[in-house]
Design a protein around this nucleic acid. Sequence first.
DNA 1: GGCTATCTGGAACGTACGGTCAAGTTTTCG
DNA 2: CGAAAACTTGACCGTACGTTCCAGATAGCC
Lengths: 193, 193
Amino acid sequence: MARVREFDTEAALEAAMSAFRRKGYEGTSVQDLVDATGIGRGSLYAAFGSKEGLYLAVMDRYREQYAVPLIELLDSGAPARELIRSVLLGVVDEIVRDGTRQSCLIVSATTERLPHDPEVAGRVRATTSSLENALTEVIAKGRASGRLTSTRAPGDLARFLLTTIHGLRVMGAINTDRGTLTNIAEVALGCLD
Amino acid sequence: MARVREFDTEAALEAAMSAFRRKGYEGTSVQDLVDATGIGRGSLYAAFGSKEGLYLAVMDRYREQYAVPLIELLDSGAPARELIRSVLLGVVDEIVRDGTRQSCLIVSATTERLPHDPEVAGRVRATTSSLENALTEVIAKGRASGRLTSTRAPGDLARFLLTTIHGLRVMGAINTDRGTLTNIAEVALGCLD
DNA sequence: GGCTATCTGGAACGTACGGTCAAGTTTTCG
DNA sequence: CGAAAACTTGACCGTACGTTCCAGATAGCC
């Protein structure tokens, strides 16, 4: 039929994600994206339509790559406290690994783009609410089995944990000391009973 | 000696802050700032030097206007738990009042500008650490008086609360329901003992 | 081996950006 | 009242932006 695509879409999205996480949406120029992905402008536009389209594709990848595995972990049936601890410490790990240079895509999408782009808003809401639901279920099970003793509604606790995760990512942009972030996570864990 | 300045610097900074909070740093053009403040480009540049200079002046005003009163409240000597509750509920109030349209200047400065602008980084660190110190002191006093029973280090609890505040501002950009946010704040308050 | 369809790279387009500047205005002081 | 100093306005500057387009390359199909 025709010439076959030369570049790897997943690798391109990964590179674009890294660029967006480093400089934000408005701060990343199309030239930055061309440089980061190694793909010509023409191909980039043929594949993704626009800068916004590429950003949305990056958000979709973020969800598949980071949120979905997290949710699968939460659905694994392991004890609630251990699950939640490993989620929070996993976030701390990511922050320490990324350093100050790369901020969380969801947080920056939320503050920078959500109010102005309904497509972004939809993706942020979908990703956060699926995580919220998974957390709620884990907490409800943990309480049913007597492992978690907090009397607060599981949904409130889940949204509190989500808040902590977002807060950690902001804190991680200011200070990436693992011990500090770990202690914060431990305090939050203490709220579950 | 010379012609007197016509515009009110504080009012201009307030208008510029509103613009930056609505659209972020990169998303706000100088023309947006001219429109928001009602001041000509020349006057704006004579007064603040550059777009970045205006942004830094806005950050300084943010600190004086929002962080300093909060710290003074914390230093007022009232009982620890009531103080911290009123700080958290005050944040919720602000979020509900601002709605989805205006996000927190500190959070957006942190994610968008902190890695690329040392001046921004310095101001973010100064503001957050003075708030952290005030919280730490309140918690230490509360524990000394037996009102707070948590065994965790006051500094860790303070940084946890700071994390909660940042997290709330992110959550507030996604969902501005007062009840939801208030419940999150109440869960966090429960971590203090 | 053409034919067609798709992809590639980069030149080119119009626009909007941050920043500058000069001409005019308002003030104070001698 | 005139001179000097500071402020205001908006036209203007060079540049960088997001997007489009096209000529050339590469694949499958007859």
